[in-house]
Amino acid sequence: MEYRTVLTTCTYCGTGCGLLLEVMDGEVVGVLPAKTHPINEGKLCIKGWNAHEFIYADGRLTKPLVRKGDTLEEASWDEALETIANKFAEIKKTNGPDSLGCFSSAKCTNEENYLLQKIFRAAIGTNNVDHCARL
């Protein structure tokens, strides 16, 4: 019999609300707002209150998928990253760096967003950087 809470940050938007994942016997069963968190002060929106629901959703991707012909096939991370790197290099060579762009996400951390814009600006050479919060 185990019930514990894991303090974490809501992944749904860039506000960064603190929430507690309720874990029973290793399974995430619910969410509570973190009452002492300076951002949300014990409050959540409907997305935060249900932030645990995608964890066990059938449609959740747990492995990278690589398109082969008409189908998406499960692949290793090495294979997926290799594919991306090769395609990016090829597109950049053929059409120039501004033919590429990236959408980052409010669901990522500040550091992850920084790294994504860095790889596009410094490694690829384009300012085509945007994010999901505009959508």
Binding site: E2, Y3, R4, T5, L7, G18, L32, A34, K35, H37
Partner: peptide, 9 residues
């Protein structure tokens, strides 16, 4: 839990 009091069994 650090600075935060949280429910626990």
């Amino acid at each position: 839990n650090g600075l935060h009091p949280v429910p626990h069994l």
